[in-house]
């Protein structure tokens, strides 16, 4: 808890420091990382705590992103309408997809969630009215009112940071609650959970829908952030990337999703935008192949840090 607060104090101070050196690019970049952290945290609820390996989480991010974007494109810019609409759309999508998928188990569950996400991907691709495969540029970000201008990078940053804090605190609280205990128990021993009288399917579905709803909020924020949405937010590689963030950060660890998002996006950025002089001397084009480095780091994490980065950190602390 103390560490979480410390992290948030640093995050609160970050834009001030960046404003001081007049580098707003990093505030915007950090907002993007934080939005991904929210999305990855929502996936961690399903994947890490619930033990349901969903390979289609990008569908919910996408449902939220599109719902929010369509609101703005249709002239309803208020976040008070657009964001709840995004949450509702993605929760509905999660409910539909979850209701069918949760009847299967194991690898079949992984694959059926993937299949549904692909369907969603192709469906938005064919939504010609909203840009089809070219995507939908937005005239502006959502409007929050309250004297807060989301067009301002610093304001936007604090808003997404607020939502990350809310997500993490929510996850923490939920996991202490009756519901959270049940979700974890089902992960640990599904048959026994049912045999002591717990309707497993209903709890799993509820967990799936909650995670979908939060992912939808992340999607809405993402669309506003870039003032643009395109079908690629629903591509399976996006679902894979979110999974990677969770696994990299730490499955079933409170900060797992956030750490994963930070490390993955940070790594990508550092490799491609900060050429190391000695490496550039040997291979001048290497920043264009940032994914090679990202891949190698990911591989190293699987092989040498089976509990993710959060696992490494907490083990260090324990020792």
């Amino acid at each position: 808890m103390k560490r979480s607060i410390a992290v948030f104090i640093v995050l609160l101070g970050f834009p001030l420091a960046m404003s001081a050196i007049d580098n707003l690019f990093y505030v915007s970049f950090a907002s993007r990382v934080i939005i991904y952290a929210i999305a990855a945290t929502s996936l961690n609820l399903v994947l890490g705590y619930g033990g349901m390996i969903s390979f289609g989480h990008a569908a919910f991010v996408g449902a939220g992103a599109y719902a929010a974007s369509i609101c703005i494109a249709e002239g309803v810019a208020s976040a008070w309408l657009g964001w709840p609409a995004a949450i509702a759309a993605s929760a509905l999508a999660a409910w539909l997809i979850g209701a069918v998928s949760l009847r299967t188990r194991g690898v079949y569950f992984i694959m059926i969630t993937l299949a549904f996400a692909q369907m969603a991907f192709y469906l938005v691709n064919s939504m010609k009215a909203y840009g089809g495969d070219e995507g939908l540029p937005l005239p502006q970000r959502a409007e929050l009112g309250l004297g807060l201008d989301l067009g301002n990078e610093v304001v936007f940053y604090y808003v997404v940071l607020f939502f990350l804090a809310l997500s993490l605190y929510g996850l923490h609280r939920v996991m202490q609650s009756r519901f959270g205990r049940v979700v974890i128990a089902i992960r640990e021993n599904e048959a026994r959970a049912e045999a002591i009288g717990l309707p497993v399917y209903r709890y799993q579905l509820a967990c799936f829908v909650i995670a979908g709803a939060v992912a939808g909020l992340a999607g809405a924020l993402l669309a506003s952030h870039g003032k643009y949405v395109n079908p690629n937010v629903l591509h399976w590689v996006q679902s894979g990337t979110l999974m990677i963030m969770v696994i990299l950060g730490g499955v079933g660890q409170l900060w797992g999703g956030a750490i994963g998002a930070f490390v993955l996006l940070g790594l990508e950025h550092v490799i491609s935008d900060y050429p190391l002089p000695w490496l550039a001397a040997v291979a001048p084009n290497y920043p264009q192949h940032a994914n090679l480095g990202v891949g190698l780091v990911m591989l190293a994490v699987v092989l040498f840090a089976p509990h993710g980065i959060a696992g490494l950190l907490s083990r260090r602390r324990g020792a």
Binding site: F55, I110, M243, I244, I247, L248, L292, G295, L296, M298
Partner: peptide, 17 residues
């Protein structure tokens, strides 16, 4: 399965590059 997904996803990135 999760570790397998992570590792082989990493391999995709590596082999692509």
């Amino acid at each position: 399965h999760l570790s397998q997904v992570l590792a082989t996803f990493a391999l995709i990135l590596i082999i692509n590059e």
